[in-house]
């Protein structure tokens, strides 16, 4: 059993994992994509970055994943960052079409120089976790949109990363599939105890999934407020229709309206 389970401590007791310190990002000298973003990510957090387009959600993810350097400020990992510490899921499944499901999931290990034989058990295990163990040798084009996304998620967790970044991963899926994948994502999280930063523009998705919602505003992109969703996990379909859920959704909506309001 190579995929480790981490215990998720209650909010407020979680050890820090990563810190964004006064991060600014300016494009072309005058477009402020991100202004003074401060965020502490703790181990076990499920954080949603919620906001309108242009609020810098994706810019923040690109800076955290080191695809982009901040103009000013710093990203600090507790204990430094190593290869395989980060898993990512993009809006598109982003699979290599010429490779089978198993080969796609193997990729992060392959880039670390590990042979398939060495990590085969891990690959099989994460595919079992996302319910695709029967599709090991299928090619991406043989899979549905939701299944491709599951492969993408399996690839993101296979190295047992300290942090998983998800950039609107379910936005392009139909609602039934999206609900199913949201449920499965929470089940997965309870099994392996991963830390997630999840970018979304859906209030309902963010309330259902996360325990911290970071609300961002646009022009200039910045963090406006944080909404805590202290409903206990596991959350299931019943939670979606509960009064508690509705209350959190209302608070998040109000925060988002405030974020939109200033420039709407």
């Amino acid at each position: 059993m190579a995929v480790r389970h981490h215990d998720i401590l209650p909010l407020g007791q979680r050890p820090p994992l990563l810190r964004l310190n006064h991060v600014d990002k300016v494009f072309n000298g005058d477009v402020i994509a991100l202004r003074d973003m401060n965020l502490q990510v703790n181990q076990g957090d499920f954080i949603s970055l919620l906001g309108p387009s242009g609020c810098g959600k994706s810019t923040a993810l690109r800076i955290i994943s080191d695809l982009m350097h901040p103009t000013r400020g710093k990203v600090e990992w507790e204990g430094g960052q190593g290869q395989g510490d980060l898993g990512v899921v993009f809006q598109e499944p982003t699979l290599m079409p010429w490779a089978t499901v198993a080969q796609n999931v193997w990729l992060p290990f392959r880039l670390q120089g590990k042979s398939y034989g060495e990590v085969k058990d891990d690959v099989l295990e994460v595919l079992r976790l996302v319910g695709l163990e029967k599709f090991l040798n299928a090619y991406p084009r043989e899979l549905s949109g939701g299944m491709k996304m599951r492969v993408s998620i399996a690839r993101a967790i296979v190295t047992n990363p300290r942090l998983i970044l998800m950039d609107e991963p379910f936005a392009a899926l139909d609602e039934i599939t999206r609900h199913k994948l949201n449920n499965d994502l929470l089940t997965l999280r309870s099994k392996i105890g991963c830390t997630v930063i999840f970018v979304t523009h859906s209030v309902f998705e963010s309330v259902f999934l996360s325990d911290r919602i970071v609300v961002m505003a646009a022009r200039p992109g910045r963090v406006l407020s944080e909404v805590t969703v202290d409903a206990p996990y596991p959350r299931d379909e019943a939670f979606r229709t509960s009064a508690e859920y509705a209350g959190h959704a209302r608070r998040a909506s109000e925060a988002l309206r405030e974020a939109m309001g200033e420039h709407a």
């Binding site: 080191d66 990512v88 990729l107 392959r110 880039l111 670390q112």
Partner: peptide, 24 residues
């Protein structure tokens, strides 16, 4: 471009990127 980003995030070398991504 997403696959290219993915390879960067996973710290692929230039040779790995050529062999596993660009050539296919």
């Amino acid at each position: 471009h997403n696959l290219r980003d993915l390879f960067r995030i996973y710290g692929a070398t230039r040779w790995q990127r050529l062999r596993y991504l660009q050539l296919p």
